[in-house]
Simulated scan of single mutants.
Amino acid sequence: MYTCLHTSQSATVAVRHLDYHVHRWGAPAAGAQPPLVLLHGWMDVGASWQFVVDAFSDAFLARRAIVAPDWRGFGRTPRPAGTDCYHFVDYLADLDQLLDQVAGGQPVDLVGHSMGGNVAMMYAGARPERIRRLVNLEGFGMPASTPQSVPGRLAQWMDGINQCERGALDLKDYDSADAVAQRLIKTNPRLAPDKARWLARQWAREGEDGRWRILGDAAHKIPSALPYRVDEAQALYAAITAPVLAVHASDDSLGRWYQGKYTLEQYLQRLTAVRDVRTAVVQDAGHMLHHDQPRAVAALIERFVQGEPPGA
């Protein structure tokens, strides 16, 4: 079993009528640096950042508070009452109130992975004054939607709600935490067994019947009703005033997912809308690069938020 070097403290904060669960690390002294806020991806949890936090230097940890929330309907943050689907803009509003709680009016250093990276980019465009520096780990956005796709997209969304209500989208349960760990390794063969066993106990919970269930609401599987408009995304990118570090893994996640419908080259072209952006690649890593190479990811974050070049 993986042994944490820096154990997180659990807390809940009031965010939009929800008890938002957050992990906290660090006990900064006077004169601390801005808080570092870590945003997890789809079907993940805030505890997923543990390996990166453990790879930060002691000096870095001593100077700042680190906070990683569980998004609504993930981990230990409940689903809102009456929810039958999720809308992306809610994550932005959740983050806005979360920052009120953990940072007050102080700008933060923001890191997001995958879905969390997309939230971070859009939020930084809508609230540029609240972000000091931003690190986006594989938050690529989506392929461009066309007007012709809207009828089918709306039909998929309604079908998804109906399927979810019938239980057709329910997540698989497991007979043990070790079985959950094996599921994590199947999805990501680079994940070390000791980390998988530790993460399984953060990613799932044992029920009274002895079955282990993933801490994610099945309604997250329902496709969005809204088209993805690249021009709107780039307008938000252009409004970001913070320096941005966009990091992708050496494995081509976009190529595997979209089979040419959306490519890494197109994503990098979209990033040119950001006024102050640099990029970095983490070698020998896939989409879960913060699990595959936590030391490399931690070093990139640490150097960047301290104003050093990513390759220094």
Rank of each mutant, 00 (worst) to 15 (best):
E265H: 04
V247G: 13
L271V: 02
R278G: 13
G255K: 01
S250Q: 15
T272D: 09
S253F: 15
S253C: 08
A273W: 12
A249L: 06
V277F: 05
A280L: 07
V282H: 02
T272V: 07
Y267H: 08
Y258W: 11
R278I: 07
V274E: 07
G260M: 00
R275Q: 11
G260I: 00
R270Y: 12
V244N: 10
A280F: 02
A280S: 14
D252G: 12
Q269V: 14
G260S: 03
Y267C: 05
T272I: 03
D252W: 09
V282L: 05
D252M: 10
L271S: 02
L264T: 00
M288I: 14
L245F: 12
A285D: 09
D276A: 15
A246V: 09
M288H: 15
R275G: 07
H287S: 13
Y262M: 04
A280I: 03
Y262K: 01
V274K: 04
Q283N: 15
L245V: 12
V277H: 09
K261Y: 04
Y262I: 05
A273I: 13
V247W: 08
M288E: 15
Q259D: 13
V281H: 06
L245Y: 13
V282M: 05
L264D: 00
K261N: 09
G255N: 01
V281F: 01
Q266A: 04
G255R: 00
Y258A: 03
D284F: 05
H248A: 13
V282N: 01
L264A: 03
T272L: 07
A285N: 14
D252N: 13
L271N: 00
D251F: 08
Y267A: 05
Y258C: 05
T263G: 04
R275W: 02
V247H: 07
D276I: 08
A280R: 02
R270F: 12
R256F: 13
Q266L: 02
D284G: 12
A246K: 10
Y262A: 06
Q269E: 15
T263Q: 01
W257P: 06
L264S: 02
Q269I: 13
Q283V: 09
G255S: 05
T263I: 04
A249H: 03
T263K: 05
V274A: 06
A280T: 06
V281T: 12
L268G: 00
Y258N: 07
Q266G: 02
Q283T: 13
Q266D: 00
R270C: 10
V277W: 06
Y258T: 03
L268Q: 01
V281S: 04
A285S: 15
L264E: 00
S250R: 14
G286Y: 04
T279G: 10
S253E: 08
Q269W: 14
T263W: 04
L271C: 05
L271W: 00
S250A: 15
V274C: 14
G260T: 05
R270W: 13
D284A: 14
Q283F: 10
L271A: 01
Y258E: 04
A246H: 08
Y262S: 07
R256N: 11
D251Q: 12
M288Y: 14
R256M: 11
T263F: 03
T263S: 09
H287L: 13
A285H: 12
Q266E: 03
